[in-house]
Design a binder for these strands. Structure first.
Lengths: 339, 339
DNA sequence: TTGAAAGCGCTAACAT
DNA sequence: ATGTTAGCGCTTTCAA
């Protein structure tokens, strides 16, 4: 691998001069510049990022940690992040924690070795509930770099963040169902060990109440944001023979589990039961399933996150900054919400 | 940021000793070790990856370049890669080229600066067709690091690769349709500027022929692997009033476009027309759409890719290694393939 | 306009 | 068992 010294020797100048050419800094004679550039090109010389980082004491990499990249939501977010990273010539060091706190610990540790400029993190666990969560919070604090939390908030966080209006959107979902004439509503919740899960339940519950309805205990199914459990719960619900006329599913995987169970039980969506979800489902429109939802722009979330991180890097002392991505509503024909 | 020198001073030993403790190398007195470890812990000291890389002249990072991370397929692949990376304590430097060759150029350049240990690459363009493709091939060769190509092959590639049995699976798709009693088959192709696109068309065509059928020119719709175009083509097909009894869609996005058009034209899948796709679609099972397909295990593809890369790094001179991920068949009731 | 030299944080050979 | 030293590839004063 060719180094700056090699280039300097080949060009018959000093390393310092080559460095000046490379960085467009300081004075350098036009002829010398040409010569050096020539050598660089001919030999495919590319400076080492490590050496630069070590010497300049600053990095050009950003850490990105997500809980499950094989969820389209995070794919979208990563897309958004990539767009902005590209504009600013930043490289991304990527981690997938697979929803495991221990993996998040390792990821943070590795990132700390890498001396990344900043970090975008979608936590695997709630930072205020489990002891491991609290450990993680400490570790993150110790990292002492700019951080933006995305998607999953916890209580008492002091980092910047980009979140979804979970409470509001869920509230809205209840309202929509009420407007469509439903009186008995149900919910398959997300993981209540995550703030985002609790918010959605609470928002929905409040929405139900504020519309003069009641949310019965037996119509609250406690899920975990995963398809498998949502499927089981839905199946149980259908088999019980007694269910709400409309349910609210708290995320895309939950919606999938619900739809699968409905299909297996020969329950017709939009006829026998109505459903409104949180998050769109990729192909729902193509298939004409009467699936309404409140959702967000995931790619935009990614863009926002990195922009916010860059602002924080720019100005480390500014007050905490939170961005709530507004929800949008996708109604698949109001009539369809009436069983 | 605390450095090894600080730790050494605090512990009252030399940098070398600290280094020995850190790396478990050479002799070091038990007491000294304890003391150093204590200081390290207390001060949250984490060695700089850059400095280590520079000094050891070896990197622990792998580059990953995909064309569109907001396609679940690549999300899955990345998941697989992550699994293995984790086992080997490798970190990933990630790039999304958004299917643009120019972005791929930049990605390769950045990776070259990073001195990554190896590279897993799903190319945005065919490396043997366009001039930019040929440029990229040169650039990749100049990188001179272990490379594994995933998903998209080109002619005359000499790097290791993990691919899908595109030809075979498409051949099989034709066979399945024939067995189900169809006599007039159609195809919405992928991007024929990509080898993978051509392979699928050719495999299907051969399958059609070998089963004693004919693939009419007007039943070949030239798509580009994207939903939009597939939608337009399908719509055109349906509006023409004259179409095959069964079509083969070459990837997941194409399937989506097709299904959307079918729905809009009130065409009943499995009744008015049968469809067999390449790639599964995430929620197709949940919804009970009679959508058969040939598909692959994407996560396994990711795992394989990184394993292969590690083997190549281990043994740089071994002959070129290609792994073809076998296809699997998902039949959604044979009867459903009969319109 | 250019070069010499020190230094970034760490490792590894060589002394002791 | 531990310290000294040189060097990894680059940047950046400071001189010339």
């Amino acid at each position: 691998m060719i180094t700056i010294t090699d280039v300097a020797n080949l060009a018959g100048v000093s390393k310092a001069t080559v460095s000046r050419v490379l960085n467009n800094s300081g004075y350098v004679n036009e002829d010398t510049r040409k010569r050096v550039e020539q050598i660089v090109k001919e030999n495919h010389y590319v400076p080492s990022a490590s050496a630069i980082k070590l010497s300049k004491q600053e990095s050009t990499a950003i850490g990105v940690v997500v809980p499950e990249i094989d969820n389209l939501f995070y794919g979208d977010v990563l897309h958004g992040i990539t767009e902005i990273a590209d504009q600013h010539d930043l490289s991304l060091v990527f981690f997938d924690t697979q929803n495991k706190a221990e993996k998040e610990v390792r990821a943070l540790h590795t990132l700390s070795q890498q001396r990344v400029r900043g970090l975008i993190l979608a936590p695997a666990v709630d930072y205020s509930l489990s002891s491991l969560g609290r450990e993680l919070r400490k570790q993150l604090k110790a990292l002492d770099i700019p951080v933006v939390i995305v998607d999953r908030d916890s209580e008492n966080m002091h980092w910047d963040g980009v979140f979804y209006e979970s409470y509001q959107s869920s509230y809205r979902a209840a309202q929509i169902l009420h407007k469509a004439g439903h009186t008995r509503l149900g919910i398959i919740t997300g993981d209540l060990a995550l703030k985002i899960g609790r918010d959605r339940l609470q928002g929905f519950r409040q929405g139900v109440l504020d519309n003069g309805l009641e949310l019965r205990d037996e119509d609250i199914f406690e899920g975990d944001f995963l398809e498998e459990r949502a499927y089981e719960l839905s199946k149980k619900m259908f088999l019980s023979g007694d269910w709400p006329t409309a349910v609210y599913t708290c995320n895309n995987r939950t919606s999938l589990g619900f739809l699968k169970a409905a299909r297996e039980c020969k329950i017709r969506i939009g006829k026998d039961i109505a459903v409104i979800g949180n998050d769109r489902i990729a192909m729902i429109d193509q298939l004409g399933i009467p699936f309404s939802c409140v959702y967000r722009d995931n790619i935009e979330m990614g863009r926002m996150a990195l922009k916010m991180l860059l602002e924080r890097i720019e100005n480390p002392t500014r007050p905490r900054n939170i961005c709530m991505i507004p929800y949008q509503v996708h109604l698949c024909g109001t009539e369809k919400l009436n069983p």
